[in-house]
Design a protein around this nucleic acid. Sequence first.
DNA 1: GACTAAGCGGAGACAGTCCCCGTTTATCGC
DNA 2: GCGATAAACGGGGACTGTCTCCGCTTAGTC
Lengths: 188, 188
Amino acid sequence: MTEVKPMRADARRNYERLLKAAAEAFAEHGEGASLDDIAKRAGVGSGTLYRHFPTRQALLEAAYIDRVEALAARADDLAGELPPGEALVEWLNELSAGMIQVRGLKALLGSAVTDGSNAVVTACGVSVKGAAGRLVEAAQREGTLRGDVEPIEILRLAHGVATASELTDGEGKFIRRYLSLLTEGLRP
Amino acid sequence: MTEVKPMRADARRNYERLLKAAAEAFAEHGEGASLDDIAKRAGVGSGTLYRHFPTRQALLEAAYIDRVEALAARADDLAGELPPGEALVEWLNELSAGMIQVRGLKALLGSAVTDGSNAVVTACGVSVKGAAGRLVEAAQREGTLRGDVEPIEILRLAHGVATASELTDGEGKFIRRYLSLLTEGLRP
DNA sequence: GACTAAGCGGAGACAGTCCCCGTTTATCGC
DNA sequence: GCGATAAACGGGGACTGTCTCCGCTTAGTC
């Protein structure tokens, strides 16, 4: 199914350049960075950018896929180091921190866990959902996480925690606080 | 302090018209509605719009202030009808639902509870924080809410719940679900 | 070296924001 | 009523960003 038509050399070169420029620009100006500016930085015309990446979302995903996969891999590291319940919380902490510190990542992960009926299956979505699934299942088996929550709900809640934390200070200092309110509940 | 310089009749008229047009436009196109279009709907020039409302935020606030105050008043109604803990949860539910259903309200309330050092004290912020403060205090006194949470934290968490719920279905169907996960915690 | 299609790139149409400043008009003292 | 005058109007225009179209260039192939 996956047609493997080798890209022409110039196309591949421009693709790489665009990715590099995009990562810089998103880091610098957030997810709203000017696309024409990214093309300019990469030394290509804007047509070239739009041909390779039809939407901002596509570019964002391509630029950050490595980082997202690192985050997913981190889930398995943590699972090896800590008991399941703690591994899950620690991972959610790192995930939320990433969403706040890496500009643009929050939007990307948000759309990866959005229930669009137009559900484009994104590589980022697959990675992150897989990682969450493994941690959630282990924690539930261990008995430290209620059995009726779905992995994707946990991801959405992490997004919510990142949002709440962002409102608080724009850095990530309050993530642990909100995460612990979530895990322990609001009752005394 | 509050200089009460009565507006000129034409100024007042245009102000009202803009508010009405803005409410329509925000409802129709979300918080990103075109400001020039709002001016056009109101039958005034864009200069007039920008004079009355220097920023999109200012217009958004003016257009929705009634609704926010209704929400704040609702807090006190609920406090009269239900025990404090339940009143709080029910209010948070209605608040979050409003953020999702009324396009633009989420952004407005978000900036009202953001800790900007450039903290503009907004009327919306005052209303909503006051209402939250009363409910939180009552629930804490009753002993159904942990004593170490601040009203503003609760508001930020509600924002997070609305965000998570929005990712789930774009309507408000999952607010109660996430709210109950938050109040009860994620442990079994 | 010549052919050809894949790929390039930037001009330009369009949409939005926001300011500037010449013109209009509500208000007030007479 | 009737100017005088400062407040308010409004739309033209500069600017920024998105995205497409199509004539030109060039990599890959024989």
